[in-house]
Write a protein that binds this DNA or RNA. Sequence first.
DNA 1: TCGTCAAGTTAGTGCCTCTAACATATGTTA
DNA 2: TAACATATGTTAGAGGCACTAACTTGACGA
Lengths: 213, 213
Amino acid sequence: MTSTKNLLTKDRKTRPETASKKAYHHGDLRAALIDATRQLVEEKGPDSFSVSDACRLAGVSTAAPYKHFKDKTEMLVAVVLEGMARHRENMLAALEGIPEGSPERITAIGMEYVAFALNEPGIFRLKFGGFTDRISDPRLDEGGQQSFEILLTEVAKCLGESEITAEVRRRGFLLWSFVHGLSFILRDHGLAEKGEEFDLQTLLDDVAERMLN
Amino acid sequence: MTSTKNLLTKDRKTRPETASKKAYHHGDLRAALIDATRQLVEEKGPDSFSVSDACRLAGVSTAAPYKHFKDKTEMLVAVVLEGMARHRENMLAALEGIPEGSPERITAIGMEYVAFALNEPGIFRLKFGGFTDRISDPRLDEGGQQSFEILLTEVAKCLGESEITAEVRRRGFLLWSFVHGLSFILRDHGLAEKGEEFDLQTLLDDVAERMLN
DNA sequence: TCGTCAAGTTAGTGCCTCTAACATATGTTA
DNA sequence: TAACATATGTTAGAGGCACTAACTTGACGA
């Protein structure tokens, strides 16, 4: 589906691009397994994901992944890391063309945050749903921190601060909490709450104003 | 630990309370298994929970649970339902003694919401963390809705409305989103964000004021 | 050309969920 | 009170999964 090959693979020299060798060796099994894992996590849900399924999808034996990943958890971590990088890129892209220091930049980030939760709920849950008993990799915390910094930078500009002060951090934390919770709720229940519908953009504008004034 | 027997068991007539019959029949295995499940879910995390472990803890064979529960998922649902009832009771109890219509009632609910997430993270995650691919029981949605109604009632009073209007629902939704997200973040990272600490009560007061004014 | 090593394979272990068939206690009814 | 029906336990076992060990293939460098 997505052409994310080589994102997480170690560089290899002179890989022959004649991919159809009917090869005993796969070519880039690591990337293929990550693709398969992401697909299955979204299709069946993270809980129902099995390494065996990923192997079947990639067309290899069930022992093959262990040449590339320590265990099942490491496969999931790889998928989440890749997803978080995409998430950050999306948020940064959403900022383009919006004037610096305007609250629209805050809401744009929020919209993108929610969009990721709705478009890739499986990965969103793996990262944020508290898989913490299974997955605890420092790289995941780093990634989350980087996303948070993006928000803080914008909050600082909105508040007219030249650097990230305690107050900026505090406001950012409030905004983050809100959008984070909103993402979970929307993913689980949708925007229609007992027949009444909220407009997401309006909701975010409202909150940004309340939090930043 | 907690004496929650009979909470979820069908009434049985004339249960002999001479529990130590070295009995082939357990007495109240259903309740014992729910207890064991809750304990294990908190100790090891929902992902690592296994029916076999619960059986060992309860001292029965691994086939015994299936006389009381359809499958593993139904065991978890039972634990979550029981936890949600406790959660609602806690929130209602937290309101006692606080004058009607004051925003302190809102923050008291928020504090209790967060407290549950921190005290019973396993159950919190099972309910809200999006186990939705495995667990989807209408009773869970009902329970969540009931909790939300508690909040809405208080929001209406704070806004001086005699019934739950669209605006009440909207404000309640904003508050819920915030506290929900806050719960997740605190459970995952704690209140100390890079050395700076927020006071939870102050944070909630602040947000309530911003959302209700 | 040959040896080495990365990256596949098959076979197998141990744990898990869940089912089938059997065993035992309990309480109802003749 | 005896016998039956039913609820609730048991053991045995099927089938799936994560992961390992030992073997095989083939690509690359000396």
